[in-house]
Nucleic acid binder design. Sequence first.
DNA 1: AATTTAGTTCTCAAAATTATGAACCAAAGA
DNA 2: TCTTTGGTTCATAATTTTGAGAACTAAATT
Lengths: 173, 173
Amino acid sequence: MCCSYSEQQKKDVTNFTQEQKQLIEKIGIYHEQQGFPPVVGRIMGLLYVSDRPHLSFEEIIDTLNISKSATSNALNLLLQMRLIEYTTFSGDRKRYFSALLEKWHQEVVDKMGSILAFSSLLRKANELRGDSNPGMNEKVLERIEFMEFLSREVPLLLEKWRKERKKYFFCPL
Amino acid sequence: MCCSYSEQQKKDVTNFTQEQKQLIEKIGIYHEQQGFPPVVGRIMGLLYVSDRPHLSFEEIIDTLNISKSATSNALNLLLQMRLIEYTTFSGDRKRYFSALLEKWHQEVVDKMGSILAFSSLLRKANELRGDSNPGMNEKVLERIEFMEFLSREVPLLLEKWRKERKKYFFCPL
DNA sequence: AATTTAGTTCTCAAAATTATGAACCAAAGA
DNA sequence: TCTTTGGTTCATAATTTTGAGAACTAAATT
């Protein structure tokens, strides 16, 4: 096999402007703040900033100057978290990675799930406290109810969003 | 000064049931997952599970078996993040800490702020990409717009919540 | 004035995280 | 069959985080 997809398309990937490099780092830092290791964040930054639809393992390594192992682990983590995806091309053994932009909606729903999990811990706390401190129970209950309110309302919000989108894109008469 | 607030009220704080201890740890782990160190999480757990309205520095140390320094740092972090507060009683040098349950609403608004910050990074990415990959720009833009939609809608949701509450608690004619 | 109390700050050790480089492996190509 | 490619896995090094303990401080008590 003489010409892979990347050879056909390669236009020096590693040549980012200073501004683009800074943006990759900023997006990286944002992801670090969300709990990811630096390399993982940088890969997300690269995938968001690159003007290529998808990058190979090799290109990621060369652009970011990171090790194969760190890259392998980071990509597998991101794949597992469904934050990125990859495409393949027949006759080319490489995998081509890109940010999975459609995931965002689900992410919000998941976040609500975790809030709900916490609210059930608070419920348990109230239950175990019994009536030894009714004032506290009442305040905790208000917080529980607010979290549950959010969990009910956010999916509705997603629905609203989907409808607004549909209006614009599917029936633009 | 012979009797501090804590001496008047002390009914063996450290005697939690197995179930309560487990709940403290679970709430601790939840906070760890939100990015806090273990000790910080456990203190939150303790403050949520305790049936006492507020606990002193000493009581926290004795109950959780943690060092003074870790406790001091953790409490100051939590105070600064406005997740806990403290009360004082005249003639008693101690500070009495409790979870700040009212903070939750603001927390949601803050979270939206961070989402908005990320969306402006993505806007920059689109801008720097120019028109070299319109398909990507379009998908990224959809994500940006969704984030901005959320940032607009969530404060409205808070307003809705406040109104529902008022209905129940302030005008229950 | 000396001691106790309620913490804070500093130093350091232990533990956890992160990333590297080398060894490895399976599939493809020569 | 031997080599190359596209990774993965392992051992380890570097860095960061976390928390303990001792020394410290300032106010209150004796």
